[in-house]
Simulated assay, not measured.
Amino acid sequence: MLASACPGWICYAEKTHGSFIIPHISTTKSPQQVMGSLVKGYFAEQKHLPPDRIYHVTVMPCYDKKLEASRPDFFNQEYQTRDVDCVITTGEVLKLLEQEGVSLPDVDPSPLDTVLGGAEEELGTHGGGGSGGFLEHTFRHAARELFGIHVGSIRYKPLKNKDFQEVTLERDGEVLLQFALAYGFRNIQNLVQKLKRGKCPYHYVEVMACPSGCLNGGGQIKLEGESSKEELQQVERLYQSPRAEIPEENQAVRELYQRWLGGWASGRAQEVLHTRYHAVERENSALNIKW
């Protein structure tokens, strides 16, 4: 199974490898589009508003998230509204603040609220790095549910480069799970070639189009006077500083599944949290005909 959170990767897969690669991609929506479904669905119901009365804005490190939000799959025909109405990058947020003469250190902080209701006392995050933590969460869940093994720390084994690493679960010398992360198109292309040759040993791959993952996204703020490596290390430290949570142990998430989605594997959960992908047919023209 291949992760589905990166719109750059999804666009490449649909246009370049189409029907071959699509069956291998997870149908789970990206976090942005999951939140879009919750804002225009659950939150709208809680506020007794139709979805088109809510304007939903997300802040992302990636320009391709704008393309993702514009996909027809994420448009509500009944109410003529998108799940995510506007996407702005972190770099664009900084430009907007500069245009308005606003400096964040001078702004009074306010409590964090959530789409699930109530107020959080502190900012939370997830384990598993700055690209969503999909590999680590899926790895731990699979180890526990399939083999009854509770995984502690996860050890990554770098392969050809730091953006292609693998994780293995073994018991008595037998490989039970073999996962990998592949960041950047060079590694993605190598991964696809392995799949086509039938020599891909992985059960799950966390795939991201940007080298070093989402924290190095094209829409991120670029600091003056610092190298890209130092800047990325600083962002990684900040991203990992909040308390990490396990989604299944979050009480608000549990209540959402029980009260609104109707259970972990319900039809409504499938409709709200999952999507489909579409192979893009190549147009024949004189430019791509092999003579």
Rank of each mutant, 00 (worst) to 15 (best):
Asp73Leu: 01
Phe74Cys: 04
Phe75Cys: 00
Gln80His: 07
Val84Gly: 04
Val87Asn: 07
Thr89Asn: 07
Thr89Pro: 03
Thr90Lys: 01
Leu94Gly: 01
Lys95Trp: 10
Leu97Asn: 11
Glu100Pro: 03
Val102Ile: 14
Val102Asn: 02
Ser103Cys: 06
Ser103Glu: 14
Ser103Gly: 00
Val107Asp: 11
Asp108Asn: 06
Asp108Ala: 15
Ser110Val: 12
Pro111Gly: 10
Asp113Leu: 02
Asp113Tyr: 15
Val115Ser: 00
Gly117Pro: 09
Gly117Thr: 15
Gly117Lys: 01
Gly118Leu: 00
Thr125Leu: 04
His126Pro: 00
Gly128Cys: 15
Gly129Tyr: 14
Gly129Trp: 13
Gly132Ile: 10
Phe139Val: 06
Phe139Gly: 04
His150Ser: 14
His150Gly: 04
Val151Leu: 06
Val151Gly: 15
Val151Met: 05
Val151Cys: 10
Ile154Tyr: 09
Arg155Ala: 11
Lys157Leu: 11
Lys160Arg: 13
Lys162Met: 09
Lys162Arg: 08
Asp163Met: 10
Asp163Ser: 13
Asp163His: 14
Phe164Asn: 07
Val167Pro: 10
Thr168Pro: 03
Thr168Glu: 10
Thr168Tyr: 04
Val175Leu: 00
Leu177Tyr: 01
Gln178Arg: 11
Gln178Asp: 00
Phe179Ser: 02
Ala180Tyr: 05
Gly184Phe: 11
Asn187Trp: 12
Gln189Phe: 08
Val192Asp: 01
Leu195Tyr: 14
Lys199Pro: 05
Cys200Ser: 14
Cys200Glu: 11
His203Pro: 02
Tyr204Met: 03
